[in-house]
Nucleic acid binder design. Sequence first.
DNA 1: AGGTGTCAAGCGTCC
DNA 2: GGACGCTTGACACCT
Length: 302
Amino acid sequence: MKIGYPCLNRTLSCSSARTFRLRSYSEERLVSTVKNNLECLTNILKYNKDHTILFFRITSDLVPFASHPVNKVPWQRHFRDTFARIGRYIKKHDMRISMHPDQFTLLNSVDRSVLRRSLKELKYHAEILDLMQLDTTAKIQLHVGGVYGDKTASMKRFALRYLRLEPTIRRRLVIENDHRNYSIADCISLSRTTGIPVVFDVFHHRVYNNGEGINPSLNHVCKTWHKRDGLLMVDYSLQKRSGITGQHAESININNFRKFLQSTKSYDFDIMLEIKNKEQSALQAIRCARTDQRFVRGNGHV
DNA sequence: AGGTGTCAAGCGTCC
DNA sequence: GGACGCTTGACACCT
């Protein structure tokens, strides 16, 4: 079991997601921003290693406008060595990496131009992980997408397009249940017809489910991950206490987290903590998991 | 220096 | 069929 956090580190004073407005686009600006972002990513991974945080989600903003037509910079070639060096570091320290394209990436869109842009965006994400020369346990997680008034048809469209993806994308793509349209049962059903691994989002599942419990879901979901995919990934977050639905909490509730670990102890998985104070929650969670031998899973480390 | 409207990209809901 | 909420961090312009 590895525990991690997404994209940003609030302790370090750098950001690996620096960007700029399209209006101020220039090749120089792009190159200097990517250079900054890769340097910061290096710092974050070093921080993670020093604190034994072995799971991390790399921001989609690493290369601004990566899939935008305005961008003609061959950034892949330009930063090839840097990507390779970062990849070596990740592998050397046995870290797990994920990425999560944002809401505009929709594989099942009914709009062909949205699909076309989404494919470019997926290609970009795969390129990042390929340039780092990471194996296929490094995943790109995506929601199933829109419903477009016909869920069955929209799921079929996802399946068809997934199966036709170029292998460099398909081997990394996994789906995740969302809080409104596609439940964990829907994702499992899609996995049955396509073989795609399913990320289990505990928070979304609490908000939107078909009445199935966490453990029965985990039981199904962990079978969708094969050896080449690595350990099942779980997203863990909680509701902000103010009561506004969907917003992520500021910090982890360690008692609830302990209960979660305890109640799911027969399964092994890597946990991504989607909590605003990021690495602080990860540090707490790791400490919590370590204090109790019952939470130490199959591979002996948390 | 600090505050805030806006940002490449979409879906779903409400009217 | 148009406006808005969603969720989020950072830019860039404003005072």
